[in-house]
Structure formats: structure tokens, C-alpha cells
Design a protein around this nucleic acid. Structure first.
Lengths: 246, 246
DNA sequence: AGACATTTAAATGTCTGACAAATGAAAAAT
DNA sequence: ATTTTTCATTTGTCAGACATTTAAATGTCT
């Protein structure tokens, strides 16, 4: 019944609550480890384990030296991106999320920011997108590099919406799917089709034609889902053939 | 120049990479702390700090006792929801994200899953939404409870899309905005307008009328943004009045 | 042989004390 | 006044000990 968590977990929670509630403002210095161990009536090691837990969540940073200590850390969008991406990637791989589901989520979300991007994208975003398109058209490119460039292209599209919260939320959806995409073998024909759609999307964004961007993204979603289907089909086929041997 | 991270951070990264790469499968038991401290040639305390970092990210779980140890943890959608929500909430509050930006992101994402929800929502989802609408219409409800119910309503809408990845991504956007919404004072007229829109949305979902859901969500977005604007206006006004006193 | 009680070994959780390393500030020297 | 030195504070790391939990091994009785 009793599921008493570790002392270090309790202490971490206590400090975390103080940070989340705003009781401890940004850049505020926490008491030293020695002081905390007195306050909580535990040993220094236990306090340290609690602090490491918080550090792993980017809630605090530590500095050594006379004026050092643990400080409440301002969570930047950069740091949040990173956590979001690794968490999303793990979630997908550990729960055997199928390609269709991940793909559907990704394009649904991406289409959500397409109108905003058509309205606000800067020349910089367009330049990034066109640069990635050029890379994707190079003949000797590996499948992995192609996927990475695909991700960069879509990131630029999302960033074009000019809403950092959207970019943050989308980071997980767009990047976490990369490992799944890496399982696909892209034929020359596949690539040229995708590059064509990317080009059309860039052009439509250039012309601020939101409905067209939406339609093209829908096409891309359909096409990508088909590519994924063929991979899944091969897998299922293999799985079904094996028992047949009995 | 030299930015050598702590030993415990290095060891945590080493183990984390092994987990993310799939080298350590789910439910695999890590070597004991004593063994790890030998392998990495560090003390047991250092190993423990590394393990606590991983535990804070839900990458491992630990068990005491003879057959205990640290095990690679399957990251569940539940756990991921929680992390996503707290991270998003912190990100918004720590970076002074204004209401407009958060609101825009939230409704853009929500509209993305509206068509899917119109297509797939179950009777259960609709029942939850109508129950929340009923609660929202109660006269004595506090602003906080009203907001909480609002969040529950929108969660049901999102979950109706039947895509766990979408639900996970949206959790942050929908729930993290709650603290910002809590700063709004809802008049009786505001509430009745919102309840009216919620009812219309539930009806439209019931009728699987995706375009209508989209339109209603857009209306709700506009209305919510207006409410937020008035709060921001009061704040700015107050800020500008103070210096006038000089 | 089977059921129950006891012991034991292995593992994490916690504590204590110590030293190393970094670092800014105060004190001392020039 | 400026530079150098000393010093106190704080985190990082280590070693060893004991407490607690847990399941398996062992022993005991029916």
C-alpha cells in the first residue's frame, strides 16, 4: 500500500513545486547543499541526488566556487525543444506507434500552422527551404541525409509561422518521426515526387497562397502515408509468411 | 573554454544514449550500482547521481531488494503527458509568452484535429463534453473551476481524434494555457457566450460536421483572444499610469 | 511431499566524514 | 592604485558504513 517515494524524490518535488509556483524566481540562488541538508534534516548526499533530479529537468543549474550554488534556471525554448524531441522520439519507439498514426499527427499539426506561415514567413525561411530542396535533389544523397533535410525543410515551414510556441510544440511531432522515416527506402522516383511537392509548397508560401499550401501538404501526407504503408506491408508479409512454413 | 560536464552527467548521458539507441531494451535491468561504479571507475555516489538524473526523465525505474535494481522504463503516454504539461507551463511562464501567442498556438493546433474528431469521436467523448458544458453553466462556479472545466472539454475534443500522438502533443498546448486563462475574469455574459459555442461545437461533432466545428473553433479563438486583450489592456494601462504619477 | 517459518544474500537508500577543485572576495604586497 | 596572494565558501568526488527491502534459499513441522 504505502508507496513512500525516496527522500531525494520528495525533496526534489518540494523544490520543484516552489519553482513552478513562482515562489523561487528565475536566477534565484537556492541555499547551499549544506544548508538544505539542515533544513530538510537529511544528509548532503540525499540533497545532492534531489538537486541532480532537478538539473536533469533543466530546472536548476549549478556553479562551483565561492559565490556558486544552485540557481533557478530560465527554461529556454532551445532547451525545451531538446527535451520535447527526445521524449517524443522515445515515446514513439517504446510504444510501437505505427507509422500511420505518427504521420497523421505530424501532418495534421503541420497543416495547422501552414496558413500562418503563408502569411508571415520571411525571405530567410524561404531561402532555407529552397536550400534544403536543392540538397534533396542531389543524386548521391543517402536516405538518412534525405530524411534529415526533409526535417529541416519542414522545420523552416513551421518556424515561418513566427510563433515560438507553435515551433516548440511542432518540434516533437516533426523530428520524432525521423527515425520512423529512416526505415523507408526512397527510390529516385519517390524523391523526385517529394522534391516536386516541396518546390510547389515553397512557391505557394512565396505567393502567400494558404489554401494551396494546405492542399499540397495534404498531398504530401497522402504520399508519405503510402510509402509507409509499403514498408508496413513488407513487414506484415514477412510476419505472415513465417507461420505458413508450419 | 573547458566545459567539462560533471562525471554524473557524463555517465547519465552514456546510459541515456544506450537506452535511446535501443541498445538497452525496455525492462532490461542495468548492472547494479556497485558494478556500474566499477565499470565507469567512479564512486557509487557518482553513479547514483547519474541514475537519479535518468529517473527524473522517467527513463529508468528502481526497485529495492534482492532482485531489485534499475530497469529501463517504458515511457507511457501518461507519463509523457505529465512532463509535457509541466514543461510547457514553465516555458510559457518563464519566458513571458503573451496570451495572444499562446492562444494562437493552442487554437491552431486544436483546429488541426477537429476534422479527425468530427469523424471518429465516440459517444463517450460527446458525453464528457456535454457533462463539462453542464458544469460550466452552473451559476456559482468559480473562475478557476470554469477554466478547469474548459480544459477538460477541449481535452475530450482532442481525444476524440483517436490519435494518442495528437493527444500527447496537444496536452501541452491546451493545459499549459490554463494559468494564463486563470488571469481572466469571466463575466456571466462571457460564460454564456462560451457555453453557447461549446454546445454548438458538441452538436456539430455529433453531426460529424467538420467544417462547422472548424468555424466554431475559429469563433471561439477570436472571442478568447478578445477576452485576453482586455486583460492585457488593463495591465498595460496600469503600467503606463504609474509613471505618469511622476 | 507440502506448507510454513527463518535465514541469508543482494540490492538500493541513507548517513558520515573527508578531500579535491573551482572561484570570487578580501587581504597583502608592490 | 594595482597586482598578487591568501582565504573562505561551495560544489564535485570518494570511501566506508549501516539501514531497509526483497526474493530466494534453507530449515522445520505436519
Amino acid at each position: 500500500m504505502k508507496n513512500a517515494p525516496d527522500l531525494s524524490a520528495q525533496i526534489a518535488k518540494s523544490i520543484r513545486d516552489a519553482i513552478v509556483s513562482g515562489d523561487l524566481p528565475i536566477d534565484e540562488r537556492l541555499p547551499s547543499e549544506a544548508e538544505l541538508s539542515e533544513q530538510f534534516a537529511v544528509s548532503r548526499s540525499t540533497v545532492r541526488e534531489a538537486l541532480k533530479r532537478l538539473a536533469a529537468q533543466s530546472l536548476i543549474r549549478t556553479q562551483r566556487g565561492a559565490t556558486g550554488g544552485a540557481f533557478v534556471n530560465r527554461l529556454t525554448f532551445e532547451q525545451a525543444y531538446g527535451q520535447q524531441i527526445t521524449t517524443s522520439a522515445l515515446l514513439l519507439s517504446m510504444n510501437d506507434v505505427n507509422f500511420d498514426t505518427a504521420c497523421e499527427a505530424r501532418f495534421a499539426l503541420e497543416r495547422a500552422c501552414a496558413p500562418l506561415s503563408a502569411q508571415r514567413r520571411t525571405a530567410d525561411h524561404l531561402a532555407t527551404m529552397r536550400a534544403e530542396i536543392t540538397r534533396q535533389a542531389q543524386p548521391g544523397l543517402s536516405d538518412e541525409s534525405f530524411c534529415a533535410s526533409d526535417v529541416a525543410f519542414h522545420r523552416a515551414l513551421v518556424d515561418g509561422a513566427g510563433n515560438p510556441v507553435l515551433s516548440y510544440q511542432l518540434a516533437g511531432a516533426v523530428e520524432a518521426i525521423e527515425p520512423l522515416m529512416n526505415m523507408i527506402t526512397f527510390t529516385a522516383r519517390d524523391r523526385s515526387h517529394i522534391v516536386g511537392l516541396h518546390t510547389a509548397i515553397a512557391d505557394a508560401l512565396d505567393a502567400s497562397d494558404a489554401p494551396l499550401v494546405d492542399k499540397l501538404l495534404a498531398d504530401l501526407a497522402t504520399y508519405t502515408a503510402q510509402l509507409g504503408q509499403s514498408v508496413a506491408a513488407e513487414k506484415n508479409g514477412a510476419k505472415k509468411i513465417t507461420p505458413k512454413a508450419n
